[in-house]
């Protein structure tokens, strides 16, 4: 697996953390509301085939500037600015959950700014009668059930431990604040853009037809956070979109099956670029 380094990168809204590594065509990874970055093997796997850029979005972890991001329009302009500064003309964009939503918003507005799109369990749509489950008011233990197919995954275990600590207010003060703070920051940053409308843009669906690049929708088959109807709507609306379902995976498929997922992305972008090359 290729190495991934991290540094602070100056953007229009301040310094953001940027993970990067590998060689090859440029690929941008946009993380979920969990703010995953450190120790995400998926990035190392991708870096075997691509020049990987994984910015940590403003407000998450140590990245600055969330106070300048008010809505999805600000998100897209921040990403455009970031791409310009990194001299990325037409990267492949891979996004998980809220990161998938961001990628779709960018792709509907600036379809010429990317070469291919991979949306993994993407948020962003409202499906009547089949909404995305709540992420802003539920306990970590409940959330873990939606995020992981295998409840023995270390992150699922950690969420359950946090829950036990939080349910006893007396011991809450004994938890090192450094452990709680990143979680609080992630949720605050996600709420900034996804509180209401809840994790969607009512106008996105009717704009999806504008996405003209090869697009793959990936779904963890046991994802109970975002129902299957959402992935289906993306596939229906984006011209020529392909669909892959990953078995024994839930919402955080990136953490659950990093190698398999990287292989899926690699196979898709390789085929896509071959098929889009004039014969």
């Amino acid at each position: 697996m290729a190495d991934i380094t991290i540094d602070l990168f100056e953007t229009d809204v301040g310094k953001v953390q940027l993970r990067r590594g590998g060689t090859g065509d440029p690929l941008v990874y946009l993380h979920s509301a969990a703010g995953e970055g450190e120790g995400v093997i998926f990035l190392n796997e991708l870096a075997e085939h691509y020049s990987v850029y994984a910015p940590i979005f403003p407000g998450f972890n140590e990245s600055e500037g969330i106070e300048q991001i008010d809505d999805m329009e600000d998100v897209v302009f921040h990403l455009l600015d970031l791409f310009d500064r990194l001299k990325l003309d037409t990267p492949s964009i891979v996004g998980l959950s809220i990161g998938g939503w961001m990628a779709a918003e960018l792709a509907t507005r600036y379809p010429d700014h990317l070469s291919s799109l991979v949306l993994i369990n993407p948020a962003g749509l409202y499906i009547e009668g089949d909404p995305i489950k709540d992420i802003f008011g539920r306990s970590p233990a409940e959330m873990a059930k939606d995020l992981f197919a295998d409840q023995s995954h270390p992150v699922a275990q950690m969420m359950k431990q946090m829950d036990r600590a939080m349910s006893d207010a007396g011991s809450l003060k004994d938890i090192p604040f450094e452990l709680i703070a990143p979680q609080l920051k992630s949720m605050a940053a996600a709420a900034r853009i996804g509180w209401n409308p809840y994790l969607h843009n009512p106008k996105l669906r009717r704009r999806l037809h504008r996405i003209g690049v090869p697009t793959l929708i990936v779904r963890g088959e046991s994802d109970t956070l975002i129902p299957a109807s959402h992935a289906r709507a993306y596939v229906d609306e984006i011209p020529g979109a392909e669909f892959v379902e990953v078995a024994n995976a839930a919402h955080m498929v990136v953490l659950e099956h990093p190698a398999q997922l990287a292989a899926i992305v690699n196979k898709f972008t390789t085929t896509a670029s071959v098929s889009s090359t004039p014969g």
Partner: peptide, 16 residues
């Protein structure tokens, strides 16, 4: 209940 981003980190630290 404390919704996300409602209270600053430094205040939460104090309130905890």
């Amino acid at each position: 209940v404390s919704p996300p981003g409602y209270t600053s980190l430094r205040s939460i630290q104090g309130i905890l």
